[in-house]
Design a protein around this nucleic acid. Structure first.
Lengths: 144, 144
DNA sequence: TTCGGTGCAAAAGATTTGCATATGT
DNA sequence: ACATATGCAAATCTTTTGCACCGAA
């Protein structure tokens, strides 16, 4: 069965926390896993409804929070005012195209190391960070 | 007169754009210049009203956008869901304390250079970026 | 049977917009 | 005079919450 590993992990998490295992939570997790990265609650809601029209808006929001707490997903806020969720397979940052909305991931050890040094300098303990470069991607930068 | 330079610059901008020069716009600009960095529209509204109780919420929002367009201010969105405005005297990034909300500015040439190289690699033209480190500042990291 | 979960609708918080009025040019 | 700006209230948009009902353990 597809996503067996993830579904089991969710079941374990719920169990460990004394929470309940519901169809909705499974459906939302599966849809989330099948979605493109960086889904918004709205998009996810639309997707879930295709398979399970009985899932409510509220449950999507609540489950998304649960998935974040459980470590399945991370929240991201880009500059368009809504929250998006992604599975961070490995840590990375983002390049965001302001014209077409394309999101590219990048990662740099050098930057990570440097920011850690800066934090230490200020006596700061970094728990998470965000680093986004906004501009135009190669497609959008060639005006026709 | 205090802020003469800035007020003149605003007047010139308005003039050049065929826009009007109003008391409200001056009042908001002055208050903005007097505010701590990273003001939200709400905070600015409260401040302006102390001097000019006749300024409306809407005008604050609209003028803030105008100041951004004119290059007097920049918008920032941290992870608390509201938009803040600042005067970026020189480019910098931020360290944000998740406990007390303290915001420290930092700047690293090394990081700037590296991110530029990454962008080039992806054929990306960077117009702006944000780089924020979230964690605990030295005060908050020493639990009492 | 007992709690936590769900879904609706309503609330909430931030920002935007419609519109009649006021004001700069 | 004319066009833009203002300010109120209402609308919007995203996310959260109250509450009665439902369903997993």
């Amino acid at each position: 069965m597809k996503y067996e590993t993830e579904l089991t992990a969710l079941a374990d998490y719920l169990d460990g926390m004394g929470l309940k295992h519901t169809k909705q939570r499974d459906a939302i997790l599966i849809t989330f896993l099948e979605s493109e990265e960086h889904v918004s609650a709205e998009q996810l809601y639309q997707e879930v409804r295709k398979e399970s029209p009985n899932v409510g808006y509220t449950t999507v929001y609540r489950t998304l929070k649960l998935l974040v707490d459980a470590g399945f997903a991370q929240e991201r806020r880009f500059d368009d005012g809504l929250t998006r969720y992604e599975i961070e397979h490995a840590h990375h940052d983002h390049l965001v195209c302001l014209k077409c909305g394309k999101i590219i991931e990048f990662k740099s050890e050098l930057i990570e190391d440097t920011q850690e040094k800066i934090a230490v300098e200020y006596g700061f303990k970094v728990l998470r960070h965000r680093h986004e470069l906004y501009g135009h991607c190669s497609n959008c930068d060639n005006p026709s």
